[in-house]
């Protein structure tokens, strides 16, 4: 057996062992520190908690006279195409929204972040920035606020607001 093949066998075996360890929450924080390129995959698809909600982003403005506008839907992704089993580019935007919202939920539970630290985190700023640019402000809007709406059902939609941001300056 050549030196190259011994080296490759060792690297591949190590990769598989670390991948197995990375599936357990106990090792994830350590492994994530060295997994910037996502070389170590996570294979826990739709488990233990499958996504049973759709996420939507909504925005409203507070005008200079203190009046609040109606909530407006922030367009993130169109509905799934009919031939999604072949071609489904929409899934990227919906997955980005889902990932960012999941990250916000985790950050809210962290002692070192929580509601007070959340506005300084990247997932929060990402959604805030996107919503502010995706929906035109009212002419006399001074501030805006975003909310995350969770929904389920196809014909009859059950909606629930799971997060409400603070007000932020429009300008």
């Amino acid at each position: 057996m050549s030196l190259v093949s011994i080296l490759l066998y060792s690297i591949v075996t190590l990769w598989l062992v670390i991948t197995l360890l990375a599936q357990h929450s106990r090792f994830q924080s350590v492994i994530n520190r060295f997994n910037g390129l996502h070389i170590i995959p996570r294979w826990t698809f739709f488990a233990p908690n499958p996504g049973v909600r759709d996420y939507h982003l909504v925005i409203r403005d507070r005008c200079r006279d203190g009046r609040l506008t109606d909530w407006k839907s922030v367009p993130v992704y169109p509905s799934r195409p009919k031939f999604a089993y072949l071609w489904n580019p929409q899934k990227r935007a919906s997955k980005i929204l889902t990932d960012a919202i999941q990250a916000i939920k985790l950050l809210l539970k962290r002692d070192d972040v929580g509601p007070s630290g959340l506005p300084f985190t990247v997932p929060y700023l990402l959604l805030l920035h996107y919503a502010a640019h995706a929906v035109q402000p009212e002419p006399d809007a001074a501030e805006f606020q975003i909310a995350i709406i969770e929904a389920t059902g196809h014909l009859e939609r059950n909606l629930e607001c799971s997060f409400l941001s603070s007000f932020h300056s429009r300008w």
């Binding site: 739709f46 233990p48 908690n49 499958p50 799934r80 196809h154």
Partner: peptide, 21 residues
């Protein structure tokens, strides 16, 4: 990862996921 999840074991995961858009 599914077998340790009560939602999967009691079969609620399937209708839960299917009910999303």
């Amino acid at each position: 990862a599914k077998v340790v999840s009560p939602v999967w074991r009691d079969g609620k995961a399937l209708p839960g996921v299917m009910k999303t858009r």
